[in-house]
Design a binder for these strands. Structure first.
Lengths: 156, 156
DNA sequence: ATACGACTTAAACCATGGTTTAAGTCAAGA
DNA sequence: TCTTGACTTAAACCATGGTTTAAGTCGTAT
């Protein structure tokens, strides 16, 4: 059975593996997003596989729109152990709600944009915006009628 | 038949009607998001209903994550008339793709967060994170197993 | 007449999330 | 030994999207 030596990585290697500039990694560490970072005697950061896993984990939080301060708070609570479970749970539940609001808002915006896509497809075909602009609802595709109604799209 | 006088609004009234600080409205105008703004002789902005409609329209673009510069570009093209239809169509199609990527990314993040919600529900119940952390996949809810697999969630 | 509140401007300020720069240290190879 | 490249730091810089401030102008009500 092969024994994987616990390799350590410099910031350049970590940057490569994570697909993220080294400056960003330094910025994250400075802001408390990478706890317990090891260093060589001369001060060079050493990342192990666990650090890389940790950073991928942080990336998930970032993808959810969580601000850096809140991620740091969460990490600090995590380091304090099981006594902070309830507080971490609140943070995560709030984040879930925030993400769901964001998604709902983006879905509305997507519909608006889809209407505009249709509008410009028709306009490009006709050579003028007057054609889609003045099209009576009953000649529009069902979906566009629905969106126009819901988003209160005016004549622009 | 009642004849609606074409009322004009001050920035304070527009702010109230749009639910947006007056400073933001000034900022938008300065950045070319509100074309052809009327003024009184003494320089006070006058908004008509069409301006308000226009601003609601701009809000839809903003909700889609479109940067202010790109909205301004779009508006400038709009003002040039039908000769810019193709260019506007490209902008809108790019925006649709961008919004769809954003939604997909957020949906992934939402799944990660949902997993964490479940994790902390179990941890809170048990009083320790060890319970969800060491739970074998076959004891997890089907959805959580799937998410953990897909998001490559480690032991944190 | 004058005080008040709402408006005007340019410019400074702020928060977020990084990126870039300048100056220096270190280890390894020629 | 000397050069080279990768690393270090603090601090400055940048972009985005506004908000706040300071100083001043209007129109109206008392």
């Amino acid at each position: 059975m092969e024994h994987h030596m616990a390799r350590m990585y410099t910031i350049g290697e970590a940057s490569e593996l994570l697909g993220m500039p080294a400056s960003t990694i330094r910025f994250y560490e400075k802001n408390g997003l990478i706890p317990n970072m090891q260093r060589t005697g001369s001060g060079i950061r050493l990342f192990d596989d666990e650090d890389l896993e940790w950073m991928r984990f942080v990336e998930h939080f970032k993808a959810s729109g969580m601000p850096i301060k809140e991620i740091r708070t969460f990490i600090e609570l995590y380091q304090q152990g099981d006594s902070t479970i309830e507080e971490r749970r609140r943070i995560i539940n709030n984040r879930r709600d925030a993400v769901e609001r964001q998604i709902a808002e983006l879905e509305l915006a997507r519909d608006f944009i889809k209407y505009k896509c249709w509008f410009y497809d028709v306009a490009a075909e006709a050579g003028t915006c007057d054609v889609p602009r003045e099209m009576p609802p009953e000649k529009m595709p069902e979906e566009m009628r629905r969106i126009k109604e819901r988003c209160g799209i005016s004549s622009f």
